[in-house]
């Protein structure tokens, strides 16, 4: 699998050949650091201004560190800010997102693992077509399914609920999780599966005893990918949730866009960081796997 985390091996890679002098190395490091600042600037602005009283922001100087450090914007964003019509803060919506993400990620990952196992080790006539259809489903513009999905959720009695959102994310998450596990299991020696079969092991025994124990890395990649995507989703959340089932992204957007009263930038920034923390945490703890997930979705496995 091609990953940015791949270490340079002795035989290949352009860096093995290129030599740079001290002067150009100075330029290179300067440029790299400037770009670090460029990528960090929005995050810096968010963090710094979430810790200032509003008066300090209105006085200008949003780049400056806080004079009077305060955590009040964080408290307000979490439990008392006006989100839409009610002053509940973002807390209930954070919980909605957790309740939505956990089952959707768990179920789509399990289904993806089973599908990948079938598509590589129990191949049948037409399996590539089945996989192709699953895969193309990942890339369709979801505008194409919004109208019928709204009706279908109504028919199923889960319109405007968190379980409804779980269902939607589950359905449109299957394609990617299948892609990950299929690409991974393709590298897995089929001889082992065959040998176990001759010993009389069945479909599920082989999956549990042989495939699962070595699936750790790809499971992590898949879980991170699904978690990030579903947590960050806005379109489905905005289309299919009621006021009390909104996920974090939709609630944050309501908080930020609400036009009543003074714009409390510090509260908005605090809320934005809250919405970012789970995925940011995952990225920092397991960045290697995150990158691998991104790449597997674009570069062939």
């Amino acid at each position: 699998m091609a990953t940015a985390a791949a270490t340079t091996n002795a035989g290949a890679g352009s860096a093995q050949v290129i030599r740079t002098g001290a002067g150009s190395r100075y330029v290179i490091y300067t440029l790299l650091i400037l770009f670090c600042l460029y990528y960090l600037l929005p995050l810096y602005v968010m963090v710094v201004n979430s810790l200032k009283p509003l008066s300090e922001i209105q006085a200008g100087g949003m780049m400056a560190l806080p004079d009077a450090l305060t955590f009040a914007p964080w408290a307000s964003a979490w439990s008392s800010a006006q989100v839409g019509v009610e002053a509940t803060g973002l807390r209930p919506y954070f919980l909605n997102s957790i309740l939505m993400v956990v089952p959707a990620v768990a179920i789509s990952t399990v289904l993806g693992a089973l599908n990948g196992y079938v598509l590589t080790k129990w191949r049948f006539r037409g399996d590539t077509i089945v996989f192709g259809l699953l895969l193309f489903g990942c890339f369709i513009p979801f505008q194409m399914v919004l109208i019928p999905m709204a009706r279908m959720l109504g028919l199923m009695g889960i319109a405007g609920t968190v379980p409804g959102l779980v269902f939607v994310h589950l359905v449109y998450g299957i394609g990617f999780s299948t892609l990950y596990f299929r690409n991974y299991y393709q590298q897995f020696p089929t001889e082992l599966v065959r040998a176990a079969m001759i010993d009389g092991a069945g479909f599920f025994t082989i999956f549990r005893r042989i495939m699962l124990p070595s699936s750790g890395p790809i499971a992590v990649v898949c879980i991170i990918w699904q978690f990030t995507n579903i947590w960050n989703d806005f379109l489905f959340g905005a289309s299919f949730s009621d006021f009390d089932s909104q996920p974090m992204t939709v609630a944050l957007n309501n908080l930020v866009q609400s036009s009543t009263g003074v714009k409390e930038y510090n509260v908005h920034f605090a809320g934005a960081i809250m919405a970012a923390l789970p995925t940011l945490f995952v990225y920092i703890v397991a960045g290697r796997f995150f990158v691998r997930g991104l790449m597997a979705g674009s570069v062939k496995g």
Partner: peptide, 25 residues
């Protein structure tokens, strides 16, 4: 590795999140 982490982290965030900072900018 450290620099790569910084260049890539925006990908982990929702646009609704980073949009708040961009709106300010």
């Amino acid at each position: 590795g450290f620099i790569r982490t910084i260049y890539l982290y925006p990908m982990a965030l929702s646009f609704i999140v980073t949009g708040t900072a961009w709106k300010w900018f």
